[in-house]
Amino acid sequence: MKNFEHVDARSLAEASRLLTEKPSVAIAGGQDLLCMMKDGLLEPARVVNLKSIPGLSRIVYDEAKGLSIGALVTLSELEEHPAVRQLYPAIAQAAGLVGSPQIRNLGTAGGNLCQKPRCWYYRGHFPCLRRGGDYCSAAAGQNRYHCILGGDPCYMVHPSDLAVPLVAFGARVEIAGPKGRRSVPLEEFYIPPRVDVTRETILRPGEVVTAIVVPPARGRISAFVKFAERGAWDFAVASVAVVVQKGEDGKLMGGRVVLGGVAPVPWLAPKASEALTGSELSEAAFGRIAELALEGAQPLAQNGYKVPLTKSLVRKALRMAVNA
């Protein structure tokens, strides 16, 4: 790791200034940043501490405005928050399945959304489009864990567990930067590789995530299912979040099906989401939604198993949501 200076920011404005003066990175929990720096993938001259900025670590629930999650809220705080557990179970579930207890105690909501790719070729200094190389090593390499949807030219999978239910709930990200504040839907926060293979998010220099705002729950039910090879300290091979409402007719209405671990961005499955409305609460209906969710999947040489696996997770998430 190269030497760097560590500066505490006292305000968002100061953070923006500090981040743009010289090659800098922001640190919140530091759980991913430390890996990136130790692996020599980021070599900042300055690390700007956001934890010294007041007001970014609160969870506020308001029936009219919804849930506001400060960027510095830790994953364990999110996992344990009573309102989140009660009204947004998929979010609590996802937060509780990240990494390990140690990582969740330090890792933050904002940091989790801004993680860098975990592709082993990206991290391991192999030829990599995202790191300015000529080709993607995963395309013709070891791609058991790579994407089956939305790849080409980069086959990474998005590493965030938390982003999956947040997109399902229609969350927005609040951003502060040198040119002021803005807010975007989370699904627009991420940049698919076809648009720009070198950037993962729309954050511009000096910008930081300040909060995540989730619309009011209003009777919506939800579930998150993560499948990893290991029971802890592992990234998702595939994950699924379902957010939906039970209509008075006993059928489902509205809602979203979002997939994690199978695409370079949290994957909002539009046809499956549409099919939620009017769906019965039966295994057969859930099976049809699962088929739609994986429609268009294009596995690489080694990761075809992700298709049936993810379908089974969609069915499981639907069962969990309606039975909760």
Partner: peptide, 13 residues
């Protein structure tokens, strides 16, 4: 895990 194309180990962590 080894990469067959460049002959290097991939999962060194």
């Amino acid at each position: 895990w080894m990469d067959p194309n460049v002959g290097r180990m991939i999962n060194t962590n």
